[in-house]
Simulated scan of single mutants.
Amino acid sequence: MINLVILGSTGSIGTQTLEVARENREEINILAISCNRNIEKLYSQIKEFTPKYAVVYSKTKYLELKNTVKLTKMSTEILHGMEGLNYISKISDADTVVSSLVGNIGLVPTVTAIKEGKRIALANKEVLVTSGELIMKLAEEYNSEIIPVDSEHSAIFQCLRGNNKKSIDKIILTASGGPFNKFTKNEIIDLKANKALKHPNWSMGKKISIDSATLMNKGLEVIEAKWLFDVELNQIDVVVHPESIVHSLVQYKDSSVIAQMGLPDMKLPIQYALFYPNRMKNDYPRLNLAEISKLTFEKPDLVKFPCLNLAFESLRIGGTMTTVLNAANEVLVDLYLKDKIKFYDIPLFIESVLEKHKPILNPTIDDILGVDKEIRKKVFNEVLKNIRK
Rank of each mutant, 00 (worst) to 15 (best):
355 E>I: 09
143 N>I: 05
320 T>C: 13
371 V>L: 01
143 N>P: 01
124 N>Q: 00
155 A>M: 01
108 V>G: 02
360 I>M: 06
32 A>S: 15
77 E>A: 05
217 N>S: 08
24 N>P: 01
63 L>K: 15
126 E>D: 11
282 N>H: 13
210 I>N: 03
43 Y>G: 00
132 G>V: 07
4 L>H: 13
38 N>I: 06
266 M>C: 11
328 A>K: 04
318 G>E: 02
277 P>G: 11
243 E>N: 03
247 H>M: 06
66 K>C: 09
335 L>I: 02
167 S>Y: 09
125 K>R: 13
117 G>E: 04
322 T>K: 04
138 L>I: 06
235 Q>V: 00
190 D>P: 02
278 N>G: 04
326 N>M: 12
278 N>M: 11
307 C>T: 02
297 F>A: 13
250 V>P: 00
14 G>P: 00
185 K>I: 09
284 Y>G: 04
290 A>Q: 10
308 L>A: 10
383 V>G: 02
233 L>Q: 04
114 I>K: 12
132 G>K: 11
311 A>T: 09
82 M>F: 12
140 E>Y: 06
47 K>M: 14
43 Y>N: 06
387 I>P: 08
5 V>R: 07
373 K>D: 14
241 H>G: 10
114 I>W: 14
30 I>M: 08
33 I>C: 06
70 K>V: 06
222 V>W: 01
127 V>R: 02
344 Y>S: 10
329 N>D: 14
233 L>K: 04
150 D>P: 01
317 I>E: 11
334 D>L: 09
359 P>Q: 13
41 K>F: 15
383 V>K: 08
388 R>K: 15
288 N>Y: 14
16 Q>I: 06
313 E>D: 14
213 A>M: 10
261 M>N: 10
52 K>Q: 12
259 A>I: 01
260 Q>M: 12
139 A>M: 08
378 K>A: 11
296 T>R: 11
11 G>A: 07
115 K>L: 05
38 N>G: 00
36 N>S: 13
137 K>E: 15
10 T>K: 03
193 A>H: 08
292 I>F: 02
7 L>S: 03
382 E>M: 14
326 N>P: 03
268 L>V: 15
37 R>E: 10
375 I>D: 03
114 I>Q: 08
321 M>L: 13
160 L>P: 05
378 K>Q: 14
16 Q>V: 02
67 N>G: 12
235 Q>E: 07
331 V>G: 02
49 F>T: 00
71 L>S: 15
3 N>M: 00
318 G>D: 08
373 K>M: 12
100 S>Q: 03
103 G>T: 07
253 K>S: 01
